[in-house]
Amino acid sequence: MSKTRLISAVACLFAALAAPAALAQAPNRATTEIPADKAKVSGSIVVDYNTRSERSQSSQDVYDMGEIAIADLMLMRGSIARVPNSNVTYSIRFDVVNPQNPSQIAREVAILRGDLPIASGGRYNPEEGKLRLDIVKGNQVSSRFTGSIQGREVVKWWDVARRLKTASKEASKVYSRYVDGKVVSIQVKNPDPLRFERLGLASGPFSFLVESRVSGILDYDYELGNWLTDQTGVTFTYNIGEKVYSDKVTGSIRYVSENGEFTDSKGKKRKFTSYYDYNLRVNEPPVNKDNAFFGGDASQADSDAFFSASDQTKPGIYGRVYYLDSDTACKQVRDDTGAFKCVGPTRSEITYDLKPVGLTYQQLANWMKLELLVIGPFTDE
């Protein structure tokens, strides 16, 4: 056998071994805590908002995912095409890392593909678009996304002024969390929720990464641009063997608008114009309901304490997702004062620099799959 054919044969053998069905002998890896030195999410996405540009006639915004590395588990590459308020089309390829030898990577073992239709009321319906995760190497199987997401009511900044005026006349929602052993609360006027309604996340690309059901709410604060959870949180429920697991994610993703520079996972210096600061906890004890009634006057001190990510010892997801935005040739719309303003960036370079702490492989995979489904709302503003 020639050297080329031998290498090809070895590659094919590893692809088969790395495919989900062949890894069924290690089902407990799903509940294994990710080693601290491997616990990270890094990589980048470049978004061209063609629908916002005067120079483009395209009806689609395109998300080009260079490569997102998820711990020592898998890598995602590909593209997402989005027609705002209409449809999202996925073509994301998964490479998987050999758990016995992390230096070995099986390429394009699985593909996330299909559509995520958006109904007129803002509801995302993956079943209608046959959104699925297909295993295309080894034992080929297909797992579909099910359920729905009720999207935000307002997705354009020029509607926000009206929303805030309405919100000022409505009751505030109080959010509470433990900070240094104390309950800290803030109030948000009429937040806009993403509601996960029996959303089913497809299994894979490894067999030990099982299907999960998602329920709960992720609220958006128009005034400050933050994402928050209430005490209900966002809950992921799944079965491994005969055991049922239920993980609740609570906390915040705080928006910060400032210019700066950071070093990416490859040691390259990059600029940013804003970032999201992650402070999400997994299975944190709930705040006493009586204590949550007090405080929360939205003062700067309360707000700073609530969003503080100084304590990163508890199980959760921390770190930042950086944005480098540009608004070259952006379309113009009148704001509430009558002045013309840019509808938003026409291009964004998004860089992940997240650190999971104390999470299992299943827990991290669940969150990252969910982020893929809400990438539109996360990048609307």
Rank of each mutant, 00 (worst) to 15 (best):
N279A: 15
T229E: 01
T232W: 07
F272K: 00
R334Q: 15
D297N: 11
I317A: 02
A309C: 07
Y323Q: 12
D304I: 09
P285R: 12
D302I: 01
T229Q: 00
A309D: 15
N259E: 13
L324K: 15
K248A: 05
V234Y: 06
E349A: 06
Q312P: 03
S299E: 03
D302L: 09
P315S: 08
L280Y: 01
Q300V: 05
S348R: 15
F306R: 04
E349S: 09
P345N: 08
S303E: 05
T232Q: 15
R347I: 05
D302E: 15
S326F: 05
P315Q: 06
T346L: 13
S246Y: 02
K268M: 10
G319A: 00
T237S: 15
L228D: 07
G344H: 00
Y276S: 05
P345G: 09
S303Y: 07
P285S: 14
T229L: 01
A298M: 06
K243A: 09
A301Y: 09
R347H: 13
V287D: 07
K243F: 05
S274W: 03
C330I: 01
F293V: 10
F306M: 04
V256D: 05
Y276K: 08
D304P: 07
T229A: 01
Y238H: 07
Q300L: 06
S326T: 15
V287R: 10
S246M: 06
T337L: 10
D230I: 02
N226I: 10
I253G: 04
S252H: 05
K268W: 04
Q300D: 08
Y255K: 11
V256S: 06
I240H: 07
A309V: 10
D336T: 13
R281T: 07
Q312K: 13
T346N: 10
K314L: 08
K268S: 13
K248L: 01
D327P: 02
V256A: 06
T235N: 03
V343G: 04
V321F: 02
I350Q: 03
K248V: 14
A301K: 15
Y318T: 00
D247H: 11
V333L: 12
R270K: 15
S348L: 03
K341F: 05
R254H: 06
Y255Q: 10
D335C: 03
F262K: 03
L228P: 03
C330W: 09
S274D: 14
V282A: 04
K243M: 09
V333T: 15
T263S: 07
T235A: 11
A305N: 11
F236H: 08
A305M: 12
D327G: 12
Y275G: 13
S274M: 10
Y323W: 11
I350F: 03
A305K: 14
Q312E: 10
V343N: 10
E242R: 15
G316D: 04
I317Y: 08
G296T: 07
F294E: 08
K289N: 09
E261K: 07
P285E: 12
E261Q: 10
F236G: 08
Y255L: 12
D336Y: 14
Y318M: 00
Y276H: 10
N226K: 11
Y238G: 00
